[in-house]
């Protein structure tokens, strides 16, 4: 039952994506919409990304200090471990999980409301490919903003680690710097960015799919947003495993 349902949903998701990933009917309108979405989905997410990354950076630093550091390990291990966690998982996967809550529910409720108030029908009647018009700018916008969000997240996470070191004195700035620079691999940053591209696509396309197929009224729009966030999170976690395998080997 569940499996059949999932396959059916996946099929209709693919059909929707085929309509979405076609040439925009008017490039000027597409660019205007995309700019608007960059603001809505990208710029508006910067504060929460900065806030969370700063505190998580600080907390990871404290945890590493308390749990990992021991007399027979070099002092820089705290900085090293903090950097690896931020680069490899937090700033891509965990941050996208958080964004799926913010951005995903926003997208589903916006498109769902347009569906139940017949705005999507109005678009279709005008001869507009509503799926392409509404969804493609969102996908484009978040995918083009996500590398910036990832870089911001890494930077503020590291800033958080420095801040807690400075504030509590658990680790000196020199030790932290040594650790952060120890065996640094640029590839890890690229991994983060590549993974986040995939997550950005999942968040925008899956959330849009849930909104686009809403029938009913405001109750159904609410349910759809919840379902969208759950599905996005599960899919992000799954694809994280696969991508990590592929990218880190």
């Amino acid at each position: 039952m569940f499996l059949a349902g999932s396959i059916k949903s996946f099929g209709s998701y693919l059909i929707l994506m085929r309509r979405v990933l076609s040439r925009p009917q008017r490039w000027s309108v597409f660019f205007r919409q995309t700019l608007h979405e960059i603001y809505q989905l990208g710029i508006n997410s910067i504060p929460i990304v900065l806030l969370i990354s700063f505190f998580i950076g600080a907390v990871i630093c404290i945890q590493m200090k308390l749990n990992v550091e021991s007399p027979w390990m070099p002092k820089f291990v705290v900085g090293y471990a903090t950097r690896e966690i931020l680069l490899l998982e937090f700033s891509s996967s965990i941050m996208c999980l958080i964004l799926s809550g913010k951005v995903g529910s926003n997208i589903t409720s916006e498109i769902g409301t347009m569906r139940v108030t017949q705005q999507i029908d109005a678009l279709e009647i005008m001869g507009v490919n509503s799926a392409n018009f509404l969804i493609l700018p969102k996908i484009t916008a978040l995918m083009s903003m996500i590398p910036i969000l990832v870089i911001f997240s890494i930077a503020t996470g590291i800033a958080g680690a420095f801040a807690i070191g400075e504030f509590t004195g658990i680790i000196t700035a020199e030790d932290l710097t040594t650790g952060l620079q120890h065996e640094f691999k640029q590839w890890y940053i690229w991994c983060s960015i590549i993974k986040s591209f995939a997550f950005a696509f999942i968040i925008t396309s899956v959330a849009s799919y849930y909104g686009y197929r809403v029938t009913g009224g405001s109750v159904e729009v609410g349910q759809a947003s919840t379902n969208a966030v759950v599905s996005c999170s599960v899919l992000i976690l799954f694809s994280d495993i696969i991508l990590t395998q592929l990218l880190m080997q």
């Binding site: 017949q118 029908d121 109005a122």
Partner: peptide, 18 residues
């Protein structure tokens, strides 16, 4: 879609883009 560019429609609830 082509035909619909020749159609104007007014919905019962207006359906303006909010």
């Amino acid at each position: 879609r082509h035909l619909r560019q020749e159609i104007g429609m007014l919905f019962q609830n207006s359906a303006l883009f909010d």
